[in-house]
Simulated assay, not measured.
Amino acid sequence: MNPLQSMETAPTFETLFDQSYERVRTAKQGNIDFFDAFYMDFLGRSPEIRNKFRKTDMKKQRSMLEKSFYHLLVFYATGDADDYMQRMVERHRGREVDISNHLYDMWMDALIDTVAKYDDEFTDETALAWRLVMAPGLTYMKYK
Rank of each mutant, 00 (worst) to 15 (best):
M58Y: 06
D119K: 00
S46G: 00
F53P: 00
Y39Q: 05
M108I: 02
L132N: 06
E96R: 06
G94Y: 08
T139L: 08
H71S: 12
Y21K: 01
G79R: 00
K59Y: 10
A27Q: 04
P3E: 11
V133R: 02
Q19I: 11
A110W: 00
Y118I: 04
V133W: 01
M40A: 04
D113N: 12
E125F: 10
I112K: 03
I112A: 04
G94W: 07
M134I: 11
D124E: 11
A116S: 08
M88V: 07
L132I: 12
Y104P: 04
N101D: 15
D18P: 02
Q19V: 12
R131I: 05
A127G: 05
A129V: 05
S100D: 14
G79M: 01
G94S: 11
K60S: 08
S100R: 15
Y76F: 11
E66W: 09
D80P: 02
M141S: 09
T26H: 10
R93W: 01
A10S: 12
H92T: 01
A129I: 03
N101T: 13
M85V: 09
S20W: 02
S68P: 06
D120S: 14
K60R: 13
K144C: 15
A37K: 01
I112D: 02
K59D: 13
N2F: 09
K60H: 09
G94F: 08
R25T: 10
Y143M: 13
Q5R: 14
R45S: 08
L103A: 08
P136N: 07
F75M: 07
R91F: 15
E121A: 15
D33N: 11
L4P: 12
Y76Q: 10
D105I: 00
V74E: 12
L128K: 14
T9I: 13
K55R: 15
A110Y: 00
L138G: 05
L132Q: 10
L16G: 05
Q29N: 10
I99G: 03
T15H: 12
D124A: 13
K52T: 06
G30A: 05
I99L: 09
E8V: 15
W107T: 02
A135S: 06
S63L: 08
F35D: 04
A116I: 03
Q29G: 06
N31F: 11
F34Q: 01
E48P: 02
L65F: 09
L73Q: 13
I32V: 14
F35H: 09
P136R: 07
R131D: 00
M85K: 07
Q61S: 05
M141P: 01
Y39T: 03
Q29V: 07
Q19W: 08
M7F: 13
D119S: 02
T139S: 11
M108K: 00
R50P: 04
Y143V: 12
L103P: 03
M85Y: 07
D82A: 02
H102T: 08
E22A: 15
D105H: 01
T78W: 03
D124P: 12
N2S: 10
L16M: 08
L128P: 06
D18W: 09
F69P: 05
F53W: 02
A110T: 00
M7N: 12
F35K: 04
D98W: 10
W107Y: 07
Q19C: 11
